[in-house]
Amino acid sequence: MGYRADYSDLQKSYASYITFMEPILSENNLKFTAVDDNFSNDALTGAFIFQAGVGQDGYSIVFTAMSTKTSQSRDVYWSNGFGRNFTWKETRRETLFDVGFFGTKRFDFYGTFGVNWNWTRMVSYYIYPDKSRNLSHEFAYNGVYKKYTVGLSFGGGLRFRFKNFIALECRYLYSKIGIGGIAKSEDFGLSDNSITKNPDYSYFPEDFLAPISITSGNELRPYFNRHSITLSAVFYLNLEELRKKRKT
């Protein structure tokens, strides 16, 4: 699967951390010695797909479950050897209904719609000069910040049954986070509610330069819409073909 997600809020958060740290380091006669590039919007990843459905009389309906896991890690280091690591993790699952034309030849076309379920996590580590990373509560921004989101997905695809029992499928999907009801600005963001955390720092900031608290609204909300294209091989049963073989 290749995808392009809109990580602009995540990128804003990372960039603001760099800006936030510059004067702090300067006050302590320190500076950045290494800063990784910002989080990337594009990536290639594997996808696990399971399908069940029927195609008959020119029409098809297929239930599709799709799961992807992705992660990105970014490090920043200061001149005294200390630093911070941000690891962004996503598990996205799609449950979709593909409704379309079951081609009499070898091509099927379909439109798809369904629901996406997303578990997102920002793990923020403190890095020591010996390169060990840890999540101890001595540092306010250490933590495992989590947020679960749900959204609607829609798109379309093409299936090419080039051989009996094996098809190739190309699917475009737009996964939008949010299903109405709660606006993004009203939703909670990434949070770490562990008892070890100072409650003032239980949310992961979207902007490190702005105040963070439960009421400030300055928390990163992972409403990261995603366009994706998936190429997959599908194994299917051709009952007509099987019946013919049985008769002969």
Partner: peptide, 30 residues
């Protein structure tokens, strides 16, 4: 991470998980 929780907010002992397999793990406490 594994947290041995304390009795009040801000307390507890944290072990960061460095490696994890089916029957072995490496934890780091700082």
């Amino acid at each position: 991470r594994i947290i041995f929780e304390g009795n009040f907010v801000g307390s507890g002992k944290i072990y960061s998980i460095e490696e994890r397999s089916h029957n072995a793990m490496v934890w780091l406490h700082m």
